[in-house]
């Protein structure tokens, strides 16, 4: 009993000492906190270094999303590239966890340090592809998925991806 009493008195003394410490709180709108470049805020879709959209509609971001707030539909363009026919993020559900960015195999989906997305109407928090797509490459400047992957697209035939040899002519006996 005595021990617990002293322990509690000690606690009270410690708390009392905090009367003279500074508050940790940052007075947000007046005083802007430091946001690191990799801070996880509003999500964007980026372009590859050649200026074409990076997203290949593989659906991995959607499935990684813990609140299921990403929906998209794949399509195939005439040049053979996969692309999202629509790409929708419901930011009123988004928890900015960044799992979509980690899942993305093409570095298309990226989180930006912008987190100030307040709206009076929840419907305005639903972002479609045209709201998400930016012109730049975001944080990753050099990566172009189609230069690495084996899928042939217009302007890049079989055997022209990274680490690939020319296509085999199976009718040639000398190879």
């Amino acid at each position: 009993m005595f021990k617990s009493l002293t322990s509690q008195l000690q606690t009270m003394w410690t708390i009392l000492q905090h009367t003279f410490t500074k508050a940790e709180t940052v007075q947000y709108p007046e005083e802007m906190p430091y946001l690191a470049p990799r801070y996880r805020g509003r999500i964007v879709l980026t372009n590859d270094p050649d200026g074409d959209e990076r997203c290949v509609a593989c659906n991995l971001c959607a499935v990684a999303c813990p609140v299921d707030c990403i929906a998209l539909q794949q399509g195939v363009r005439d040049d053979g590239r996969w692309y999202p026919q629509f790409f929708r993020i419901n930011f009123s559900r988004c928890i900015m966890c960044g799992m979509c960015e980690e899942a993305c195999p093409t570095n298309a989906i990226q989180l930006t340090p912008d987190f100030e997305m307040c709206e009076y109407d929840r419907q305005s928090m639903v972002y479609e592809k045209e709201h998400l797509q930016i012109k730049g490459t975001g944080k990753y400047h050099d990566y172009n998925f189609y230069r690495v992957a084996g899928l042939a697209i217009a302007g890049k035939d079989k055997g022209e991806a990274q680490n690939e040899s020319k296509p085999i002519d199976i009718k040639d006996l000398l190879q």
Binding site: L16, T19, E24
Partner: peptide, 8 residues
């Protein structure tokens, strides 16, 4: 409480 918990 705020003062003792280092907030406002």
């Amino acid at each position: 409480l705020g003062i003792w918990q280092d907030r406002y």
